[in-house]
Design a binder for these strands. Structure first.
Lengths: 203, 203, 203, 203
DNA sequence: ACAACCGGGACAACCCGTTGCT
DNA sequence: AGCAACGGGTTGTCCCGGTTGT
């Protein structure tokens, strides 16, 4: 790997937590300089603008989280197991040391009402990708007979995502893991109700 | 009402949507001037600083929403009915014309990681108040026998809040009501599972 | 006159020499701050951008010069007298203490190849206005019989302008009045050849 | 010619139009990089600073124009013919494809009020050289009896130069050749008036 | 006394010409 | 010879206090 690429990667890795903590528009160049150790010119040699760096940092964060999701899904056999694993991996974002500040997708969704439309588009794409991961897992479970036939992939994806994002917000607001733990417990129970063998459950 | 108080109130009412839309730190004085119609001096005559105005606007927004919650709760008799009403009132924030930008509490919780600690404190207080409203409704339902004895007030408050906040974020990200509708449907079903078998219905 | 208008006028008057000396794009904000005595915010309170100030300063300079031309023209009776007066007033720009840096129109014409198109447009307008002043004087002289019938107003305007602008450039380059003096002498003779009573002359 | 010298020459040739178009201070290194195809380091290998390159580019442009003047002068026999040829060659600068942006000497004279003193000195030298070319032609014509005895070499050089530079500015400002054409016509007539009555025509 | 205006200066992002290291 | 890093300089926006006029 050439030296320039190394530096660029280092900038992205160091910048991602800054953006995720201070917001993708609230992060000042000075903060990024502090975090990366480079000077203004050094950063601008690799990124044409602050927004370009923000996009790269967002993509990096999303990709890094996505990798963890995929690993978790691959490690499980059953659809319910996969779903629970996804929930648990999401919950780990609460105190992920490599990306403090919560879920980058949720943060960006809330913050970028009027800021960068590009960033907003990326957030949608990331969210859609995450939805698809849940939805296809549900579909597969239904096909295989593991999950009840009326389990709606879209609804499940929505409920799981909404509950987790909201719980993450609560736990970060109060600095207390209990909210996320309650959400995980609730979602685990919810997923169990979708299993065919257990019978009745919430739609 | 004295004239000064009127002006102050008008500033707060006009500023609240600005803050909620652009973020409580991203709202510039220029934007507030545009919205209120006053000059800089006019604003600073009534508020010592931009943060003071932000706090007042936040409090105003929270109080205004809180009023709606209380009205909804008072209009229903049963605990389950009250809970569903709360859910529905929250969902109305999606396209509330008087306060665009989503839920001020959730927005503030996400945004103010490092910004104003005072504002963060207010957000916690507002969230706690909302939690208490749900929790006490659940407790009352349990006491009256309407809800199952094992219904945990704290858990219910957490699940309801998290799901709603997360769904609001999703619907605003995609600009599509369906996510919030799914959440409302899910929570309504969830609340029904908390009802004792006596069969008391929705008010 | 309100105080704000006074300040604005003072800024323009002080900024005009700076722009004319350093170029309308080469003048830095720091130089303008030095010249006006105000801080950045003070200037930006009155002008939305550096370009807006540059335009105002250019217009001020042009108008101020134009006033001098009109006075000179009004003070003479004959067409030839008016033309010679215009030449002499132009020549005074060499050491005009109120606007050092030469002719703002010529400077801008040379400088703004790719800079502000608006400024370029203003320069054209100012130049056209100056041309018209010469041309109409010639026309009037021809009509009255004072000047020879074949005196072409456009050609005269071009020759007078070109010679003066070029001589101003030379005198400023060498810091020597002699070039401008030669031009004035030449143009005076040239104008004399256009007089009907003197007979033959250069077209 | 060694390869390094070739590269240096290529840089100068490509840089000259950039400097002449954007101004010797307004031309950014980025623009020069675009024009030359080299990287920053490549340029700084051949020139110690941007100013050094600017000087080289200016000298190159002036020398190139000077060569054309000398050729034109050599091709004519009579003094008047030489003078008219000089005028015509100058006029060709209006749309010279190899050096867009007008006359480098005039541009530099106007622009470099406070920029590089060295560049200003070069502009003076170039202008003096051009003056001498005209002046010596006049002197030679006077000596040979072709031109009238009272023809002042200095005055002729001044008038010719001033008119041409001014007309070039006008034609470039309006993007219209007519101004230069009028100047050429005027100067041609002017030169004819300097011819002795012996009736020697234009070469 | 009060509201509006004006000015201050720190800071924003970004670009600049330049130098060193590979 | 070229890429990487530097840091000062650019314009422009920020929020806020002092001053002025009514």
């Amino acid at each position: 790997m050439p030296k320039g690429e190394q530096t660029r990667q280092r900038i992205v890795e160091r910048a991602a937590p800054i953006f995720n903590t201070l917001g993708y528009s609230g992060a000042s160049l000075a903060a990024l300089i502090d975090a990366t150790g480079l000077e203004k010119g050094g950063i601008y040699n690799h990124f044409a603008s602050k927004e370009a760096l923000a996009l790269a940092a967002f993509d990096y964060a999303v990709q890094e989280i996505g990798r963890r999701y995929l690993e978790a899904v691959r490690a499980r056999r059953t659809a319910a197991g996969k779903l629970v694993a996804l929930v648990e991996v999401f919950a780990e974002q609460l105190d992920a040391p490599w990306l403090p500040g919560g879920c980058p997708v949720g943060n960006t969704a809330i913050e970028s009402d009027d800021t960068s439309p590009t960033l907003r588009e990326r957030a949608r794409a990331a969210m859609t990708s995450w939805h698809r991961l849940i939805g296809s897992t549900v579909k597969q479970g239904v096909r295989s007979g593991e999950l009840v036939a009326y389990a709606d992939p879209y609804a499940v994806a929505t409920i799981v995502t909404a509950t987790l994002e909201g719980a993450l917000m609560l736990s970060r607001l109060y600095d207390d893991r209990v909210y996320m733990e309650r959400a995980v417990a609730h979602l685990t129970a919810y997923i169990r109700t979708l299993q065919a063998t257990t019978g009745v459950g919430l739609a």
